[in-house]
């Protein structure tokens, strides 16, 4: 038992369950709790509870939301013509930061991976087909990661939408902006060559 306190040890083990937190970080966090003002910790505890209580998933796109529909789905200024399919809610955050996309989203909360027991039923496709048909969507952009699983998921999406008059596209792969060819790995450069465009 570390620190000679069963309670603190328990706190460390709870922190360790969080993603990206190892033993050392968990210890640091636990000691931070110990040293902080009571009011700060009370606020932390309250916020944790509130988040669990009030934050859920958007009924349309499965993005995180405090209302039945998320801020993006309920934003009338955004276009229904394009829907972007992403793996995780944080991917939305990254895409929004680009400011280049004004359509809607669908968050799958994962990718197809039979090894981890994840099939189509485990992903949040919702009623995508119906949504596309009724919403007048013209293009679905699949923005899953360029991994084997991400590609398989993209194929699944295009299969799911077969027969609808909707264009299914995939994010391009290649040169990073501001990057230098000199420092690029061969695999990425190879993909960039394959996906070259007219000047």
């Amino acid at each position: 038992m570390i620190f000679g306190s069963p309670l603190l040890t328990r706190l460390v083990s709870l922190f360790k369950q969080m993603p990206g937190v190892g033993e050392k970080s968990a210890q640091r966090m636990a000691l931070y709790v110990l040293r902080s003002e009571r009011s700060a910790i009370e606020e932390l505890a309250r916020t944790l509870n509130d988040v669990k209580e009030h934050v859920g998933l958007c009924e349309v796109c499965a993005n995180v939301s405090e209302a039945p529909q998320c801020v993006i789905c309920s934003d009338a200024r955004r276009s229904d013509e394009t829907v972007c399919v992403v793996e995780q809610p944080q991917d939305i955050y990254m895409l929004e930061r680009t400011g280049a996309f004004r359509g809607r989203y669908l968050v799958l909360h994962g990718v197809l991976s039979p090894m981890d027991g994840v099939g189509p039923e485990e992903l949040r496709f919702g009623n995508l087909r119906q949504r596309i048909e009724q919403g007048g969507t013209r293009e679905v952009i699949v923005a899953t990661n360029p991994t084997v699983e991400g590609e398989a998921t993209a194929l699944y999406v295009s299969q799911l939408l077969q027969g609808l008059s909707v264009r299914v596209t995939r994010l391009a792969r290649g040169l990073p902006v501001g990057g230098s060819i000199e420092f690029l790995d061969e695999a990425t450069l190879g993909r960039a060559l394959e996906g070259r465009q007219d000047v």
């Binding site: 197809l112 039979p114 099939g119 189509p120 084997v148 590609e151 398989a152 998921t153 194929l155 699944y156 299969q159």
Partner: peptide
Amino acid sequence: DLQVWDDELVRL
């Protein structure tokens, strides 16, 4: 179920 993995298998 297999179809998307078939496509990946063939492509790669």
